[in-house]
Design a protein around this nucleic acid. Structure first.
Lengths: 199, 199, 199, 199
DNA sequence: GATGAATGAGTATTCATTCAT
DNA sequence: AATGAATGAATACTCATTCAT
């Protein structure tokens, strides 16, 4: 279904979508080696353009990163917005749905999340980074019950950590990826359910 | 009966413990700003010595980091060793004890763990980093039951993530630190217990 | 009709030939002070560009040196190629011609050869250095007669050493340069002739 | 006849001859890698002493080199002195004897001469270096005949170059070392003889 | 006769960024 | 839409040397 007839990406095809290609390659490298350790030279070499070309499309190195975040965090923002529109107190069903959708988002944006987890120190003082923590707290707001005891609050966080961490460490464990994702989701939902019902 | 009456550390006092001081300052800065973003210039300036002095005590920048790890990961290695000596199948009690001790270790070496969590991308390709993952899997080995269903395997990982993540994110939540630590530990133990009993 | 009427090189003129200028200045300094003792700072200062500019044109310090060699050793390679195409056994005439041409090459690339002679220790473990020895042996291959007694073999080497050494030490002896070069060439040819005829 | 009974050099043995050992190791390394590229750290590590110890025995790095030269160039100075005492005009016999003795000196101090040849650029601006050139000219003074034509002057230099160069390049040629040395000496003597007789 | 600790000046190299074309 | 050429500031690291002990 591809438009190209030859192998690889022809110069023709490349025209007009360089911006996108920069983002793709950058994310790939950032995730692989970390933000600091990835240089613009590396990115431009892999794209077979000059460093200066990157500056035509983005004002700074940080702007490349930020733009990637912007594209990919939109679904999360929508999820948060949706959650916050739901009637209070938040129903168990809504919480479960939130986790389910979050799990899907996580899979779709896996490289970005991997990057975020592994580069917190760097990302922390990017404006974008700030908002990541906020987003996590945004999801947490949907799940938590302010009246519940501390252990149940922890359970809600735990559900989130389980999903974040699980995505990347379970690679080292045998088993079918989709099955693993489901198991992770199940544990997360279980945690939140128990926090909700106070079981 | 200390010799110094004034404030600050006199040059006298400093003699002989420079190595230790380098490690302290380095960890502080690494945790604050990340490994890559911390330069040897910064470390040496804060210590009021020259960069070259750092090189008298450590062969490379990485060696500074490694030496800090070596000192602080010993307790974990001991815990793993102890766990692996316990009779198989591992009793629930042993698992609980493991988590409890791990929790204490985590608190003691908090800055190091914060650093590790936030600099995974960097730490990954340090030999030392390698071994961190191994250590986590080492603890996991004690907790897990290879026969148990996938969800229970996930619960064991979840317990670990909860402890790691909890330590640092709960800062942003109100409440007494010690109480929070206990709540985290409780949730972790609960997860492992349920995995163990298959409840 | 040059654009500059004043002394020195205008910035206009310099554009586009920086690479060449780096090579010129570098060779000059390398020959004057040795490779190790010449720093990139020195080169860049003399060129009135920044050190980073050097790195735009050459990947490393060694690459500067290598590039100079590449340009200047081509004539030698051509001479060797020519020599090896000649019918065997090599005629005396061919040998004499080889020395004559070699002598001219030596004069043209005098600073480079001076540099090589005086920096053998450094140049030795550069790939480029390797090939210098090979080149010398390449010329030697044309001159030598494998059946001849050891003394005659030595005479052939001696002819080469005489030319190499002569170029630089005879500076300290009175007399017209061109005349001296001719005398050197004559002695070299004489050595090879005697080796050839077994006189 | 050695005093030690064990293998290797015991600490006992080492006492009192550290100065000598420094010179030995230094020359070895200087010859191997060049003067600039050999650091005092390297020397001290190979000797299993501290860098500071070197400074107990020698005022500077250059002083180590100079001291080595002083020890080893004495024979040459004696040869020159002897040569200059001979009646003028210098007889052919004296010239031949000079070359013969020079050849022996060269073999004895081979590493030093190898070093000198390969590090001329470095050695040039050491006071010691100056004197090396002077020494070579000193030998040349004995061999040359100021009235002789330029080609014969060149022959005398050529004899010297042949000996210097020959020592090190003939390594790459098959044959017995002693036999090669003799062949080299023979060629050198032949050159000087022809210069002397004007053949 | 030597060490432990440190310094000051230097090195090659890399990076994000700029700008005229 | 992109390049070629360059910069300024930084970085990790090395070296010869010093000096109190």
């Amino acid at each position: 279904m591809g438009t190209g007839t030859g192998t690889g990406t022809s110069k023709q095809q490349r025209r007009g979508n360089t911006r996108q290609r920069i983002q793709d390659v950058a994310l790939e490298l950032f995730a692989e080696q970390g933000y600091e350790k990835t240089s613009l030279r590396e990115i431009s070499e892999r794209l077979e353009v000059t460093k200066a070309a990157l500056y035509y499309h983005f004002k700074t190195k940080e702007a490349i990163l930020t733009s990637i975040f912007d594209d990919l965090t939109r679904p999360i923002d929508e999820l948060i917005a949706w959650g916050h529109e739901q009637p209070r107190p938040v129903s168990l069903e809504t919480k479960q749905k939130t986790l389910t959708r979050y799990s899907e988002i996580l899979v779709d944006a896996a490289p970005l999340f991997r990057f975020m987890q592994e580069n917190q120190a760097t990302v922390r003082d990017l404006k974008t980074g700030e908002s990541f923590k906020d987003r996590m707290l945004g999801i947490y707001e949907i799940l938590k019950d302010p009246e519940a005891p501390m252990t149940d609050q922890v359970r809600c966080f735990s559900a989130l950590f389980t999903m974040h961490g699980g995505m990347f460490v379970l690679k080292d464990v045998e088993g079918d990826p989709e099955e693993k994702r489901k198991a992770i989701l199940e544990v997360a939902i279980d945690l939140v359910t128990r926090a909700h019902t106070g079981a």
